[in-house]
């Protein structure tokens, strides 16, 4: 556990100078716009993905670092899954929080009249589309959980294939995501709120389980693979 903490810290220090400012500013913008009633905070979910991708990629010049630092191979693998899970689920949670905050419309009254009208019109648009606040929150959680699970599976496959098929795996993952999302978005309006909430809770727990299982499988098999 101690090793895992050190590696997470290592990766965090790598990512902060590059994406830290960008993510910080974006989060501040999300917060401010949420106070004015604009649900821009939904982008904090992809932001987490950006941070995750940069953390792992920027932390080293090569894989050699895994053979140099005094930490076990398993800790390096666990750190990848921990970063993925934390970023996506935290990203999803933040998106929900910002959305909830935007629903309170704490500072909407301070907006110029035209803009205030547009903000209120957005609510009307979502209502017409059959997407209520709890449903949208559920959808965000489902999305973040889905991406977390799919990327965990992709990391496992890429590690086990020794990164030989990365492009193919990423393309397959992207295609599957597009198909699933188009079906899901199409059907969401018809789903009752309770179903969406149950699916979102199940997705959240499911993605945690998938991430954990992928991590354990990767650790078990990577033990015999060379760096």
């Amino acid at each position: 556990m101690n090793e895992l903490r050190k590696i997470l810290r290592y990766d965090f220090i790598s990512a902060v100078p590059v994406t830290g400012t960008f993510c910080g500013i974006a989060l501040a913008v999300c917060l401010i716009t949420a106070l004015f009633g604009l649900p821009l905070g939904l982008v904090s979910f992809p932001l987490a993905a950006v941070f995750f991708a940069s953390a792992k990629e920027l932390s080293k010049s090569s894989d050699v670092i895994e053979g140099v630092l005094p930490a076990s191979r398993n800790s390096f693998i666990r750190s990848k899954f921990a970063e993925l899970t934390l970023s996506f689920l935290a990203g999803g949670a933040m998106a929900v929080l910002f959305y909830l905050l935007s629903c309170l419309k704490l500072l909407t009254g301070l907006l110029p009249e035209k803009l205030e009208h547009s903000v209120r019109a957005m609510d009307g648009f979502l209502d017409t589309a059959g997407v209520t606040m709890p449903k949208l929150c559920g959808i965000i959680v489902i999305f973040s959980a889905y991406f977390c699970a799919v990327i965990a599976a992709a990391i496992m496959v890429m590690e086990l294939c020794r990164h030989k098929w990365d492009t193919v795996i990423m393309a397959a993952m992207g295609l599957a995501t597009l198909i699933l999302l188009s079906v899901f978005v199409d059907k969401t309006a018809e789903l009752p709120i309770r179903t969406v909430i149950i699916i979102s809770a199940a997705s959240f727990l499911g993605s945690l389980m998938i991430s954990l299982i992928c991590c354990q499988v990767t650790c078990r098999i990577s033990k015999d693979l060379e760096i």
Partner: peptide, 14 residues
Amino acid sequence: YLADHLDAKHIEMQ
């Protein structure tokens, strides 16, 4: 093999 976008201060922290 270290992160080449960082300066030596950050490398030390890592």
